[in-house]
Amino acid sequence: MSSLLREIRHTPLLWLLIFVPAVLIAARIVPAAHTLLFVLAVVAIVPLAALLSHATEAISEKTGDAVGGLLNATLGNLTELIIAVTALHAGEYMLVKASIAGAIVTNSLFMLGASFLLGGLRYHVQEYNRAGGRMHSALLLMATIALLAPAAVSELDLARGEVMTQNFSLALAILLIVAYGLSLLFSLKTHKELFASEDRGQAEEAKWPINLAIGTLFVVTVLVALVSEIFVESVQHAAATLGMSPAFVGFIIVALVGAAAEMAVAFSAARKNRLDMSVSIALGSASQIALFVAPVLVLLSYVVGPKPMDLQFWPGAVTMVMIATVTATFVTNSGRSAWFIGALLLFIYAVFAMTLYMVPPGSHGSV
């Protein structure tokens, strides 16, 4: 417990944990104050995501590379997964799909771009291992093609189109999970030497005892679930008040909040000229979302949702994911970066954010 308290004292981001009891109390006292609850929930999720990240890294260090890699694949995006499952249960499929697409774009453009920019402002040119970037980019490209495929089924007659889309999405979900499992086997077992620099970079962070890490993981998971329920219940009313569509909230707000902890680590690594770690976090997290979180949500929708969810995204989301994936592939192919490359990635992300805010997708594309 002393290790946890010391971590909180020395990490300003974790001081925001005070907002966790604040939002839980506010939900009891003023349940109709949706905008207040929305803001408090967003702020409260950020330090909880940071604690999840610390606990996961600590357990990974103790269990070794193979089990630790699988654990990171499962829990690395736990915050987004919990929010999405809560939204699934509430039938907010537009929010779920927007958060999936937004997480992929945010990680591959915003997180990667900001890492390049922050590192480039300190170092003239930075170099990193291209193997990880190439693998994650290839996985993202394959997942994006899978997201494009259900659009073809949507052109069928209404009597059969919806059922075929759901069955097709279920088959794609299973295929993506298998592909992600093979990528873990490739990077953690058969060709792990290609990714050695990434493993060295991630091993320094976790210093907690294993019992503390497991206990923290359990408690924080429960708290994230409680806060996520408040977030989902308030998001519609708050978004209307603030002039934001559910697509914008999921694509931008949820994605940025869920990745806050990972961004802090990636940005810090870039400033220390350890860009291997930054690229691995950014593109690795994006590929986790595309090949693990998204298909798991499709499977879970059969259990917790009012009806099965498909992988048919609105055209703008698929276009943005495709552009982000191709851009990330191009910029990471050389194994070198400078600050201006990061700035260009951030400009592309800003264009997407402005487009979603000013021209939100129609309701016909929400399910």
Rank of each mutant, 00 (worst) to 15 (best):
T79Y: 07
F340M: 13
A324V: 14
A58T: 04
V220M: 07
I82C: 07
A114L: 14
L185H: 13
G335C: 15
G76E: 02
A317R: 01
W314A: 05
P209G: 01
W15N: 05
K207F: 04
V105P: 00
P12M: 12
S245L: 11
V227M: 14
I83K: 03
S53R: 03
L175R: 07
G69F: 12
A269D: 08
R9T: 14
H124G: 02
S278A: 11
A173Q: 07
G316S: 11
V331Q: 01
H364L: 09
P306L: 10
A179H: 09
V254P: 10
N77L: 09
N77H: 11
S280G: 15
V303D: 02
A131T: 06
A264W: 08
S285P: 07
R336D: 01
N211K: 12
V279R: 05
I145P: 09
L297P: 06
V20M: 03
A206V: 04
L175S: 15
N273H: 09
H54E: 02
A114E: 00
R160W: 02
A49F: 00
W314N: 07
A238L: 12
H10I: 06
T74A: 15
A101H: 02
R271W: 11
R160M: 03
G215P: 02
M142S: 05
S337F: 14
L48Q: 01
A26L: 01
A266Y: 04
A213R: 13
K62G: 12
A206N: 06
A32F: 04
I83M: 08
M111D: 00
L156A: 13
G201C: 02
S301Q: 03
G113P: 00
V125T: 14
G284F: 00
A33D: 05
D199M: 03
A27T: 00
L299G: 01
A286F: 12
N273Y: 04
F251H: 07
E57D: 02
Q312V: 10
A240V: 10
A213K: 13
T241N: 14
